[in-house]
């Protein structure tokens, strides 16, 4: 007898039976092969059913609700439970779940969720992986074109003839070789900034409008003042110190973001592989 108990197979069998009964006890309204035509109604099942019906899962609250329920309501709840259970089982036995897209999608969703559990097992990314990922996806990290300039503003509001004022200002600025630092003494106050340093085209557009942005990005950097260029608020004379075309950065400039992206990519792959492993268990045929 002792030998028998020490036998792993027997231990497994006993445990298996125990697990089976636990599941039977704790899983509500499970269809058991033994009770196909028998609907068991007890308090636990009704309480669980009540919770789902009210979409409220506070146990003590629903217990109290159940206890204080008038007899006729309890009767109605029971009838409703029996009706649902009978319909559910009948549907199963007719195989109505087989071709139901909603049930199918729900089960697929649960499996996809399970597949995410493989995240923890993915290997750490080393430098070589990082390099490879970066080279393969370099376009994603493109640095936008940008411009650095200072400007002298001639406001529509304050000048009756902005064109004339700005032309004479331009001559003056260039004749006196006015620097960016000295430019504050000329023209009107602009509502945003005077200096723009390494700003992208989107940013310039938001401060000056599209027309200005197009025009200023066409100009070359230099030591002389250029313009006038019109914006939504007036005309501007610009001193462009720098312009950088859009370019692909080195890994060192964007390493942190690349690492985060590479990790994310690996997680995505791990999930896809987990799903593929499941798919591979199946033989696919066309007949």
């Amino acid at each position: 007898m002792n030998k028998l108990i020490a036998e792993p197979l027997i231990q497994f069998l006993v445990l298996g039976v125990l697990v089976y009964f636990c599941i039977e006890i704790f899983t509500p309204s499970r269809v058991s092969g033994l009770s196909r035509s028998e609907i068991v109604v007890n308090e636990d099942k009704l309480k669980a059913y009540l919770q789902f019906q009210r979409k409220s899962f506070n146990k003590s609250q629903s217990e109290q609700l159940f206890r204080t329920m008038p007899v006729d309501e309890k009767q109605a709840l029971t009838q409703s439970y029996i009706r649902d259970e009978a319909l559910f089982r009948e549907a199963l036995s007719l195989g109505l779940n087989d071709n139901d897209e909603i049930i199918r999608r729900r089960l697929i969703q649960k499996m996809e969720y399970l597949a995410q559990g493989f995240y923890d097992d993915i290997p750490v990314i080393n430098e070589e992986d990082l390099n490879n990922y970066f080279l393969a996806n370099r376009d994603q990290y493109k640095v936008d074109e940008s411009i650095s300039f200072t400007h002298v503003f001639v406001s529509f509001k304050k000048n009756p003839d902005t064109q004339k004022t700005s032309r004479s200002l331009l001559t003056q600025l260039n004749r006196n070789t006015v620097t960016a630092d000295q430019a504050g003494a000329y023209g009107d106050r602009y509502l945003y900034n005077r200096n723009y340093i390494e700003r992208t085209s989107d940013y310039i557009t938001s401060h000056f409008g599209k027309g200005f942005q197009d025009a200023v990005f066409k100009l070359a950097p230099g030591k002389s003042w250029q313009g006038p260029i019109q914006s939504d608020y007036g005309v501007h004379l610009v001193l462009i110190t720098r312009k950088s075309a859009s370019r692909l950065p080195e890994l060192s400039e964007v390493a942190e973001q690349v690492l985060a992206d590479a990790q994310r990519e690996r997680q995505r792959k791990a999930k896809a592989e987990a799903i593929q492993n499941i798919v591979d268990k199946y033989k696919v045929s066309s007949t």
Binding site: S148, T150, T179, A180, D181, N193, R194, N195, I197, E198, K223, L239, T241, R242
Partner: peptide, 19 residues
């Protein structure tokens, strides 16, 4: 302005002050 840009700006005569 980053120090690097500042250097470039100085060498190009134009210098941006803190606004």
């Amino acid at each position: 302005p980053l120090p690097g840009i500042l250097l470039v700006s100085i060498s190009a005569i134009f210098c941006y002050a803190e606004e």
